[in-house]
Protein backbone atom coordinates (compact mmCIF):
# COMPACT_ATOMS: atom_id res chain seq x y z
CA UNK A 1 0.00 0.00 0.00
CA UNK A 2 1.19 3.50 -0.67
CA UNK A 3 0.48 6.77 1.05
CA UNK A 4 -0.25 9.59 -1.39
CA UNK A 5 -0.15 13.36 -0.97
CA UNK A 6 -3.88 13.50 -0.33
CA UNK A 7 -3.48 11.09 2.60
CA UNK A 8 -0.56 13.14 3.94
CA UNK A 9 -2.77 16.23 3.92
CA UNK A 10 -5.52 14.27 5.66
CA UNK A 11 -3.16 13.01 8.42
CA UNK A 12 -1.81 16.52 8.78
CA UNK A 13 -5.36 17.75 9.47
CA UNK A 14 -6.04 14.95 11.95
CA UNK A 15 -2.82 15.61 13.85
CA UNK A 16 -3.26 19.39 13.79
CA UNK A 17 0.12 19.96 12.21
CA UNK A 18 0.13 22.25 9.19
CA UNK A 19 2.32 20.99 6.36
CA UNK A 20 3.34 22.95 3.27
CA UNK A 21 3.64 21.28 -0.14
CA UNK A 22 7.39 20.83 0.01
CA UNK A 23 7.25 19.22 3.46
CA UNK A 24 4.32 17.06 2.36
CA UNK A 25 6.40 15.62 -0.50
CA UNK A 26 9.25 14.79 1.85
CA UNK A 27 6.81 13.19 4.31
CA UNK A 28 5.24 11.18 1.51
CA UNK A 29 8.64 9.65 0.69
CA UNK A 30 9.59 9.09 4.35
CA UNK A 31 6.29 7.56 5.38
CA UNK A 32 6.23 5.24 2.40
CA UNK A 33 9.69 3.89 3.19
CA UNK A 34 8.72 3.47 6.86
CA UNK A 35 5.48 1.66 6.00
CA UNK A 36 7.27 -0.59 3.56
CA UNK A 37 9.38 -1.63 6.53
CA UNK A 38 6.37 -1.93 8.87
CA UNK A 39 4.43 -4.11 6.45
CA UNK A 40 6.84 -6.95 7.07
CA UNK A 41 4.33 -7.78 9.82
CA UNK A 42 1.86 -9.03 7.21
CA UNK A 43 3.99 -12.16 6.84
CA UNK A 44 2.86 -13.19 10.30
CA UNK A 45 -0.34 -15.10 10.91
CA UNK A 46 -1.94 -13.59 14.03
CA UNK A 47 -5.59 -14.56 13.72
CA UNK A 48 -5.69 -16.47 17.01
CA UNK A 49 -3.32 -14.26 19.00
CA UNK A 50 -4.64 -12.08 21.82
CA UNK A 51 -3.33 -8.50 21.56
CA UNK A 52 -0.98 -7.45 24.36
CA UNK A 53 -2.48 -4.27 25.78
CA UNK A 54 -0.48 -3.86 28.97
CA UNK A 55 2.88 -5.19 30.00
CA UNK A 56 2.53 -4.39 33.70
CA UNK A 57 1.29 -7.46 35.50
CA UNK A 58 -0.86 -5.52 37.90
CA UNK A 59 -4.47 -4.58 38.06
CA UNK A 60 -5.15 -0.88 38.29
CA UNK A 61 -5.12 0.34 41.89
CA UNK A 62 -8.01 2.29 43.33
CA UNK A 63 -7.29 5.33 45.42
CA UNK A 64 -9.43 7.40 47.73
CA UNK A 65 -11.36 10.11 45.97
CA UNK A 66 -10.22 13.09 47.97
CA UNK A 67 -9.56 16.73 47.29
CA UNK A 68 -5.93 17.79 47.48
CA UNK A 69 -4.98 21.45 47.51
CA UNK A 70 -1.65 22.32 45.96
CA UNK A 71 -2.02 26.12 45.66
CA UNK A 72 -0.12 26.22 42.41
CA UNK A 73 -2.50 28.38 40.38
CA UNK A 74 0.12 31.13 40.04
CA UNK A 75 2.80 28.69 38.95
CA UNK A 76 0.54 26.99 36.44
CA UNK A 77 -0.60 30.28 34.93
CA UNK A 78 2.99 31.50 34.71
CA UNK A 79 3.64 28.88 32.01
CA UNK A 80 0.78 30.09 29.84
CA UNK A 81 1.75 31.82 26.59
CA UNK A 82 -1.26 34.16 26.89
CA UNK A 83 -3.40 34.87 29.94
CA UNK A 84 -5.79 37.41 31.34
CA UNK A 85 -5.97 37.47 35.14
CA UNK A 86 -6.81 33.88 36.05
CA UNK A 87 -7.77 32.74 32.57
CA UNK A 88 -5.96 31.20 29.63
CA UNK A 89 -6.54 33.25 26.49
CA UNK A 90 -7.17 31.68 23.07
CA UNK A 91 -8.30 33.11 19.72
CA UNK A 92 -12.03 33.83 19.57
CA UNK A 93 -14.00 30.58 19.22
CA UNK A 94 -17.67 31.68 19.31
CA UNK A 95 -18.73 34.33 16.81
Amino acid sequence: MTIDLKTIKHISKLSRISVDDEKAKKLEADLNSIFLFIEKLNELETKNVEPLTSIAETTLQLRKDEIKTHNIREQVLKNSPDKNKDFFVVPKVVE
Partner: peptide
Protein backbone atom coordinates in the same frame (compact mmCIF):
# COMPACT_ATOMS: atom_id res chain seq x y z
CA UNK B 1 -2.80 27.02 25.26
CA UNK B 2 -1.76 26.29 28.83
CA UNK B 3 2.02 26.08 28.58
CA UNK B 4 4.83 25.93 26.10
CA UNK B 5 5.42 27.66 22.80
CA UNK B 6 2.53 29.25 20.87
CA UNK B 7 2.42 30.55 17.33
CA UNK B 8 -0.41 33.03 16.71
CA UNK B 9 -3.15 32.00 14.29
CA UNK B 10 -6.23 33.45 12.61
CA UNK B 11 -8.49 31.22 14.68
CA UNK B 12 -8.17 28.46 17.27
CA UNK B 13 -7.54 25.61 14.80
CA UNK B 14 -5.06 27.69 12.83
CA UNK B 15 -3.26 28.50 16.08
Amino acid sequence: VKYGFRSPGENLIDM
